[in-house]
Simulated assay, not measured.
Amino acid sequence: MTHNSLDFTSSLQVPETVEDCEKCLHYLEASTQAISEHIRDLEAGSTILDLACGTGEPGLGLVEPRASWRLIGIDGSLPLIEVARMKARQAGLEDRAAFEVMLMDALRLPDASVNAVISRMGALLLGDPAATAREIARVLKPGGRVSIAVWAEAELNPFVFLTQRALATAAPGTSMPDLSGWFRQMASPGIRERWLLDAGLIDVEVKPFEWNVLFEDFESWWSFISGGPHDAVISSLDDRTREDVRVAMSDLLREYERPSGGGFVLPVACQIVRASKAPE
């Protein structure tokens, strides 16, 4: 499938609650470190734009220790933005961090107004990624940088593929969001590079990034995956079928049991996308 054949009018939109967003923070921390490597040496006074910022991370964590940096966080969900604003106040960052409800493929920001654009598991995956790339290029200052972590293929993300396998085994015929198909086309080789290059950015690179996530026991894992994009599906099941799904999931998790016992270690993969805007 070429990048010109994607139908963004039917793009996957997964509503995310504050609870879903908050419980993901710990498990995504490793990807934040990869994001920060490309922007850690930005000049004093830089403004960072965090696309699909959720409840404020990773933007707040990156800006807080750098006293002269400013943050603009945008997300399509008002409840998430309200929590991000609260976190900024609690951290004493309200004078350096602003959060607004906004779509990342239609930014209400001036041209050449930010020094860097970051995102964690949002930009170049949801909405219209090609339009988002154009908006990123528009709002970046000359010499500005892009550093984004975004999901790779669903088959490399146990949060998705284990859940869908358990549902397919124990609840065949259940209607599920086509996460596998969507992630696969979004992560096709060369496609994210092409969006950014077509938008006029330079030094574009997309690299795989992997880390391990520890879940202490089955219940912590079940609590995590039973929300998010599969919440509506799992909630719609009757008690007996839901228990069958739990049993199927428990069987799948055996492959990931810690050798010493006590929990599961699951490998997770994403892509780190980096680019720059040409200097004047």
Rank of each mutant, 00 (worst) to 15 (best):
A91Q: 15
V83N: 01
P208A: 00
R96P: 10
E219Q: 10
E43Y: 04
W195F: 15
F161Q: 00
E257C: 11
G173Y: 11
Q271M: 02
A67K: 09
R108H: 14
A98R: 14
W195A: 06
E135D: 15
W151Q: 14
F183P: 01
R240S: 04
A52C: 11
E16D: 04
G73N: 06
P177E: 12
R240W: 00
E82L: 09
I234A: 04
A97L: 08
L201W: 12
K277Q: 15
M186D: 08
E280D: 10
L42S: 09
A91R: 15
A123S: 12
K277G: 10
I272D: 09
R145D: 03
T9R: 04
S276I: 01
G56T: 00
R165Q: 15
L196G: 10
E100G: 04
S235R: 15
G143E: 09
G45N: 11
L197P: 10
L252E: 11
V117S: 12
D105S: 02
T55M: 07
A84N: 04
E19N: 14
A187I: 02
I136C: 08
I39N: 01
A171Q: 11
L197K: 12
A187K: 06
I74T: 14
P279C: 00
I74G: 07
E243S: 08
V139H: 01
L49E: 06
V213L: 00
A168N: 11
P177D: 13
L93P: 02
R246L: 03
W211Y: 05
